[in-house]
Simulated assay, not measured.
Amino acid sequence: MAAPMELYCWASGWGLPTVDPDCLTVLTYARFTGAPLKVHKITNPWRSPSGTLPALRTKDEGILSDTHQIITHLRKQKFNADYDLSARQGADTLAFVSLLQKKLLPVLIHTFWGDAKNYVEHTRKWYAEAIPFPLNFFLPSRMQKQQLERLQVVCGENYLDSEEELEKELYREACECLTLLSQRLGRQKFFFGDSPASLDAFVFSHLAPLLKAKLPNGKLQHHLKSLQNLCNYCTAILSLYFPWDEGDPPPVVPKAAAGDGSESEEEPYKRRNQILSVLVGLAAMVGYAFLSGIISVQRQAPSQLRPRAITLEEEEEEEEE
């Protein structure tokens, strides 16, 4: 039996199977199609074979990290959620996915990473608590920088305008997008009837984090919660395809007794993580010691270079300097 494909994604949180929208898109699409994936939910992207999340390890195409590339690969493996769609429905899928990328994604980035209150009290707090030490000291801010750069690319030249005006425009367009999605869904179970398609994976992964996160500043969240059919839609997908708490299945075998070789497969990444953590921590401590004056390098004249005992009082004086 061929080894299953391996998906590396961010861990569960906020009542969701994974907190990252891109990871959630891939994981939801895989659940829709029944693709046999061995899922690794992690809190350290350095444990991913690509260094980023999501990442799919495949037998034929190596490591895939782009969401659309991963879904395309699953389709090639005969796991196609859009198999029964008509040409018009396929065109609608492309149009709505483009709408999500242009109108809703920028506000999601701004809500979670750009809004100072939300970032400090919710986003950074979760990642800082989830990411292992010492990476949790700098990875959240690095991720924020990457997300804001992504927002700048999406917004283009408008990003250079007044931040207040840009924020108003982004939220206005996002509210219109949510209203349009609500009207398009109507009373249907999914966007194209009774069976989920790739569009449902994209819509769900954009709406669910906004719906489930406990944001201190949630004005767009309030608008989403006013659209009851979209809220019911997200709740139904969670209960149907991720029926366990926070999307995690209940443990079947204790880790200490597991004998399926999964631990040995992840051992290289654990070892790499441990080494990097030690090196980063050591470098941070040495750098702090030099900057604060705890450690200093002094040159002495040759006549002063003679062996002498270092007393406790001398050590304390050097620290005070």
Rank of each mutant, 00 (worst) to 15 (best):
G247A: 09
L238E: 05
C234P: 03
L7A: 09
L53C: 12
Q77M: 14
K219S: 14
I109Q: 02
N80M: 00
Q89D: 04
G114W: 05
F192Q: 02
G62D: 08
S86E: 01
E265Y: 04
P243Y: 05
F137A: 12
Q152V: 00
P49F: 11
A256N: 12
P54H: 10
L148S: 04
I294G: 07
F137P: 00
P249Q: 10
L215P: 00
P196R: 05
L211K: 08
R308C: 14
S162W: 06
W10P: 02
G51Q: 12
R184D: 02
E129C: 10
P216W: 03
F192A: 03
Q144C: 04
I294K: 11
C155M: 14
W126T: 14
E61R: 15
A236L: 12
K225D: 00
V280H: 05
P209F: 07
E319R: 13
P209G: 06
H222D: 15
Q300M: 13
Q188Y: 03
I131P: 01
L227T: 01
G90K: 10
P268E: 08
G293Y: 06
P36M: 08
L220Y: 11
L94G: 04
Q89V: 00
W126V: 15
K59H: 14
N136R: 15
E319P: 00
L312I: 13
P54L: 10
F79H: 12
E320H: 09
H68D: 06
Q147N: 10
L240M: 14
Y233Q: 02
E157S: 15
G90R: 10
V280S: 06
I63A: 07
K78E: 09
I310C: 10
T58H: 03
W10E: 04
L100A: 08
P132K: 07
E319N: 03
M143V: 13
S98Q: 10
L148A: 07
E320M: 11
W46C: 03
G51H: 12
K117L: 13
E316D: 07
P251N: 03
A258D: 14
I295D: 09
S48C: 03
L64N: 03
D200T: 01
V253K: 08
T28K: 03
G156T: 06
G51E: 10
Q183G: 08
E176T: 04
T43L: 05
L56A: 05
R299F: 09
P196L: 08
Q101K: 12
A208T: 05
I70C: 07
W244G: 15
Y29E: 01
L24M: 07
T43H: 11
R150A: 13
V252M: 09
F190T: 00
T72R: 09
P209L: 07
L207P: 06
N229F: 02
L166W: 01
A236W: 04
E163Y: 11
R271N: 04
K225R: 15
K255Y: 10
W244T: 03
A30Y: 02
L312W: 13
E61L: 14
K214I: 11
